[in-house]
Design a protein around this nucleic acid. Structure first.
Lengths: 198, 198
DNA sequence: TCACTATCTGAAGAAAGCTTCAGGTTTACA
DNA sequence: TGTAAACCTGAAGCTTTCTTCAGATAGTGA
């Protein structure tokens, strides 16, 4: 593992190169040599830090997803005890903002994520997201406790699914703002419906 | 292109073999020889019907998505003029049912679909879905016309995103039934909120 | 400055995959 | 039944890619 500063830079540039190559030629044609070239190092160097190509992709993907999920968790913790409408607004806004900041990266990493379906990386990340949301929802009396589990699944998948679809469209910023507003309307309406239903 | 009956069978079994191989070894290790073997034909035969591996995957994916989308379109057309709640119920139920019927196929094809991002296949399919939903929504006076465009995007991405997430979890049938109920609650609440908002 | 460690290089071995094609088999139909 | 078209075979050429490793370079601490 890297200890000197230059090797830390190296690892960093390999990560970035991976994204760049993905952007330019797609995952099908992403090769170790291409990544190394783009990073300005030799292949051998790459193999000093990752046992193989898969491991590289895995690391890049995991880091990306984890960082994103941490933002969601932060927003959830920060909204504990708030009104339902505020909860929804906070989490939706935080997620969209975070996603916007790493837009291209996100988009291009969709392409490699299915490779790790077996491994369950996506499932683990999704679980973290759902749990954070569930904890937040439990902090309000408005949602019936027996609904929380499922409501958080709906919340999570609606949020991520919608944003993914909108981003995949190559949507302009204005559209994302509209998506944000509509997501807030939808999720608030949903949670309200759940609480008045019983 | 196939004209005799046996060659139609051949093409059919190549399609099925593609799915099977995807299920067993994943897209990364899907090779032309493996597919041919699984289909019980020789590689050469495969190349009689598809110019290359990509074309094979594309065809299989496109066929799958198109069939799915046709079910959505059918449900939308069949719900024109109905109450909002009925629209939602019909479309959600139709989509989930259709998806359930081709569950494994769906799951495994997520893995190859990002390869055709450039091509825009997914975008075209999504567009068809959104347009069908938009046409349906326009048939009721309850939704403000200026909201229809975006509401159909929300509808589509919520529906597909949620179902994808739930299926990816390897959810049991009971969970899908719950997802169906909650999706109906959510989308109905959303559309209702849209119509009362203005 | 010296010696030891960390880091980097890139040619080349080895494996794997895509695609072709010359020749064989089956079917249609006159 | 004979022949042309349709269909199938699978070994082998060719390319691409992964990964290794012996040797070079750069940093670090004494």
């Amino acid at each position: 593992m890297p200890v000197q500063e230059r090797s830390i830079d190296t690892v960093q540039s390999i990560h970035e190169a991976t994204i760049q190559v993905l952007l330019q030629v797609g995952s099908e044609k992403l090769t170790t040599v291409r990544v190394a070239e783009r990073a300005g190092v030799s292949v051998g160097t790459m193999y000093q830090y990752y046992p193989n190509k898969q491991a590289l992709l895995y690391t890049v993907l995991e880091e990306h997803l984890t960082a994103l999920m941490e933002e969601v968790e932060r927003a959830c913790r920060g909204s504990a005890g708030a009104e339902v409408a505020a909860m929804v607004e906070n989490v939706v806004s935080a997620f969209i903002q975070a996603k916007l900041r790493v837009r291209q990266k996100s988009l291009v990493l969709y392409e490699v994520s299915p490779q790790f379906r077996q491994d369950g990386l996506m499932k683990r990340i999704a679980k973290r997201g759902r749990q954070a949301i569930a904890a937040m929802l439990r902090s309000t009396k408005a949602i019936p406790p027996e609904e929380v589990e499922f409501a958080s699944l709906m919340f999570y998948s609606t949020l991520t699914g919608t944003v993914a679809t909108v981003l995949a469209k190559g949507a302009p910023a204005s559209m994302l703002e509209a998506a944000r507003r509509h997501l807030i309307v939808m999720l608030t309406a949903y949670l309200t419906a759940l609480s008045t239903e019983s």
